[in-house]
Structures are given as structure tokens and as C-alpha cells.
Design a protein around this nucleic acid. Structure first.
Length: 459
DNA sequence: AGCCTTTGACCAGCG
DNA sequence: TCGCTGGTCAAAGGC
């Protein structure tokens, strides 16, 4: 376990400084570009049309760059974002967790609270929300999947739960972290296993759609935070319609993770459906940016940078924009809890509000605010609107949810701070951009060029 | 009744 | 060829 993180960490280590927005963009842009475009560059492998959501874990260094956003940090730091998740290291694609360690600063509770206010979402599905440790805004962004992605461990899991305190109903969504359904697809968990290299158990999910080959692997921290999410394959169907099960709990991410959430949760729901989560492939080796992505990494989470960047961006904006959903925090833990019966978990989670410790967590009613502002954040080259924020049970830090502002684009991303390692940000991308990057200016190039910008190294 | 989670066991790939 | 590890299967149980 330890090892794992270490590895992850290794992956990206942004410098403490916060990325400036600009830089951020560039970086992100690069990333985004990579993502979107399937540039000829490198990606020799398959071009996956669909975006694969990836979970990246960033670990910000706590240098505090107060203002620096993660992204910037990354850039500045010259992060090298190397992807070295264990898996990555290994050869396999497996988990792709890129760890990025921006120096995020921890934010005071106040900040947190603010953030929280913004929205606490609990995402629970895949993502677990992390507590609000929030770094100042930028930091907020945590990149997941993965899913992954909270930290009860290190932090008082309680915190996360706090949110949950709400009524079960209110929290409805507490979804199970297990499933990542927030992406709009329905998933069935078919296995869970403790993987050698990773600290957390890995859960295996299959898209419940009849002929859909898509599978996803999610590693969740004890907190429920998603440490890593790896998608395989592309959905050969549209997203299921929202109405599904009921989630007793309510909206949000259902415990099941399945689409329920979507249904239930109006807020999110809009987006829930994302497109494909995964394409099988991975990200392929290359980013558009030209960064080389290790095969292993492929398919997995997005590059750290992105997240980072995004995070930074978001961060800036996050608070502002973010909408907060409250409630659901807990879900993420599901897996964690795993063993417990779901029902119990759900109940407990929802009901129990033990949590609450941190003021941060906001127990807010599920409600949701939709992001009022549409703050559009541009981090990775795409414009993102924060539509939710939630504290996940295990993670004291809030998770922020972003959608691509492009009307036709269903891509979403979740960012959160790893509960187990506040310094780490986890970003999970879902879906694939079906449009070009809005920002062309940005400094992708620059970023790329920027020595500070993280570099991805592949084997 | 249907669907999902849990979990131990089994299988396949790789070194 | 053996052992390890990851991924998947499938029974049991719950909602």
C-alpha cells in the first residue's frame, strides 16, 4: 500500500507554487488537447474516441503555494508528472494512477467551509468526496476516479460523513462509492480484490447494459475516495435514462452507484450521463499534447496535470462557482465499508451523521444548487463548469464536479483531495470531448514547453 | 422478481 | 513448470 502511494506520488510532483492561471491553462490545455484531440502524435495505439475517464491522483505538495494553483504548481514545479503508478510502473496498464503532487495548501476551515458552502456534493459514486481540506481554491481540485478518492484514512473519516448527516433522504445519494455510476451509466460490481500494489481494494464493475463491454476498475481509499479508476472499453450504447431505481437514499449517487443517482439527483443528473466512460483504451500512449503516456497509463486516468490544472483553475473558481451539493458525502465510502451490507451502510451513512466533525463538511441538504455561476474554468483547455461539490463520507475534503461547458459535450470531471493524503488530488474524467478545445490560445504549447510543466514519462 | 453486492474460488497471464 | 497476481465467475444473500 504504502508503496503504492509512493509510486503514485512519484508520478507527479508539482512544485509548490501554484500555477498561475495562465500557466495552468497551458498545461491543462495541453492535456485537454491531448485528450480531445487524438493527435496523431503519439498515440499510436488506438485512438479512442471516447475519453476514458481516468483517475489521477495528485498529491500536492504542501508547500503552500497559497495562491498557486495546483496546476500552476505543477507547471512551475516542473513537475514531472510522471505516471508511475504502481501499475504503471509495472508494465501493465492496470491502474493508472498518476499521482500529482501539487503543493496544495491546506485551507483553513474557513476556507473549507466556504467551499463547502459552495457545494458539497457527495459524489459518491465513483468518486468520493474528499473533505474540504481544501487548499485554497485551486487546490480544491482534486482529481480523482477515482475514484476514485477520499481519505477517511488519514483524516477523520467522520468528517466526510458529516455531510452525510443529513437525512437519509437528504443524502439520498449517498451512494455507494462502489459504483461509479455518476457517470450516467449503470454498473454492476462483479468483483473486488486487494491488489498487491495498492493500498486499497480494487473493485471491478461492468456496465450493466446488455452488450456493453465496458468495465471499470475502481480503487477506493478507506475514505471512500477514489484512488484510481480505470475504464476499459467504450460504451456501445447511450446512457441509460435516468429513471432507474430508486435510491432510497436519494439522489445523488446512489449507493449503487448506478444511474440511480442520476435519476435521483437532479442536479447532477443532468450530466450524469456522461458519455462513455471508458474507452477501452486508455489514453493511449500519447496525449494529444504529445506527451507520451505510458501504455500502462493508458486508459486510465487523465494525466495529472490536467487535473492539476483543472484543479487550479477550479480552485480559483471553485468556490465561486461551485455549486454545492450537500449531503451525500458518504457514499464514497461504500466500498470502504464494503463489507457491511449495503443497506446498513446506506442507512448508516445517510443517517449517521456522526461525522460531522469538521465544520467543513457541510451537511447540507441535498440540495443542490446548481452552480450558479457558471463559472467556467479552463484548465485543461476546455471550459468547465462546476456543477457540484460534495463532501464524501470518508473524505473530509469536498469533491468538486465539473462539466464541460460545451453543450453537446458530456464530459465531466471530478476533483477531490485524497482523504488519505490531503496533498494528493484525485481527478477523474468521464467521457470524451466531442468537440475541439475552446481555448486555443492557451499555452499548451507553452506549457508543454514550460520546463516547469509536468512532464509525463512513460516507460 | 429482478438486480446488485459480497466474497471465495477459479482461471489465465507473466516472470 | 511453478508460483504469483490480477481478473472473473458464481453462489449466497439483501434490498
Amino acid at each position: 500500500m504504502e508503496v503504492k502511494e509512493a509510486e503514485r506520488i512519484v508520478i507527479a510532483k508539482p512544485v509548490a507554487s501554484r500555477p498561475t492561471y495562465s500557466s495552468f491553462k497551458s498545461f491543462s490545455e495541453l492535456l485537454s488537447g491531448a485528450i480531445n484531440a487524438s493527435p496523431p502524435n503519439v498515440c499510436s495505439e488506438n485512438i479512442v474516441p471516447a475519453i476514458r475517464p481516468k483517475t489521477v491522483r495528485f498529491k500536492p505538495v504542501f508547500n503552500h503555494a497559497p495562491s498557486a494553483t495546483v496546476s500552476s504548481q505543477a507547471e512551475q514545479s516542473g513537475i514531472g508528472i510522471s505516471i508511475s503508478s504502481d501499475k504503471v510502473l509495472k508494465s501493465d496498464v492496470k491502474s493508472t494512477t498518476a499521482v500529482y503532487k501539487p503543493q496544495a495548501k491546506l485551507v483553513s476551515k474557513t476556507t473549507v467551509s466556504l467551499l463547502a458552502n459552495m457545494g458539497n456534493f457527495g459524489a459518491s459514486n465513483e468518486l468520493t468526496l474528499q473533505s474540504m481540506e481544501v487548499p485554497a481554491r485551486p487546490d480544491l481540485h482534486r482529481n480523482t476516479q477515482s475514484h476514485t478518492e477520499t481519505d477517511q484514512t488519514s483524516k477523520p473519516s467522520k468528517v466526510g460523513s458529516q455531510n452525510m448527516d443529513e437525512d437519509p433522504k437528504a443524502l439520498p445519494a449517498v451512494a455507494n462509492s462502489d459504483r461509479p455510476s455518476y457517470d450516467g451509466y449503470n454498473w454492476r460490481k462483479y468483483g473486488q480484490k486487494q491488489v498487491k500494489g495498492s493500498e486499497y481494494p480494487r473493485s471491478y464493475y461492468k456496465c450493466t447494459h446488455p452488450n456493453c463491454p465496458v468495465k471499470k476498475k475502481v480503487e477506493r481509499s478507506f475514505d471512500g475516495q477514489i484512488a484510481e479508476i480505470v475504464y476499459k472499453g467504450e460504451h456501445n450504447h447511450s446512457k441509460p435514462q435516468p429513471a432507474k431505481r430508486n435510491s432510497p437514499q436519494g439522489v445523488g449517487f446512489s449507493s449503487d452507484g448506478t444511474s440511480q443517482d442520476a435519476n435521483n439527483i437532479p442536479l447532477w443528473s443532468n450530466n450524469y450521463n456522461e458519455r462513455n466512460e471508458g474507452s477501452e483504451s486508455r489514453v493511449e500512449n500519447c496525449n494529444e499534447v504529445g506527451l507520451y503516456i505510458p501504455p500502462d497509463y493508458q486508459g486510465k486516468a487523465p494525466l495529472p496535470y490536467e487535473h492539476v490544472m483543472a484543479g487550479a483553475v477550479n480552485a480559483g473558481g471553485t468556490s465561486e462557482t461551485s455549486v454545492g451539493l450537500s449531503g451525500e458525502c458518504e457514499e464514497g465510502n461504500k466500498d470502504v465499508a464494503g463489507d457491511e451490507s449495503r443497506s446498513k451502510r446506506r442507512r448508516n451513512e445517510n443517517q449517521s451523521s456522526e461525522v460531522g466533525t469538521l465544520g467543513e463538511c457541510i451537511q447540507e441538504p441535498r440540495v443542490v444548487m446548481q452552480s450558479s455561476t457558471d463559472s467556467e474554468i479552463i484548465g485543461d483547455g476546455f471550459r468547465w463548469r462546476k456543477y457540484g461539490q460534495k463532501v464524501v463520507k470518508g473524505n473530509p475534503y469536498p469533491r468538486s464536479y465539473y462539466r464541460c461547458t460545451n453543450l453537446k459535450c458530456n464530459v465531466r470531471k471530478h476533483m477531490e483531495r485524497a482523504s488519505d493524503d490531503p496533498r494528493a488530488f484525485i481527478t477523474t474524467y468521464e467521457g470524451k470531448h466531442n468537440h475541439e478545445m475552446p481555448l486555443r490560445n492557451t499555452n499548451h504549447a507553452a506549457a508543454a514547453a514550460d520546463p516547469n510543466s509536468p512532464t509525463i514519462k512513460v516507460k
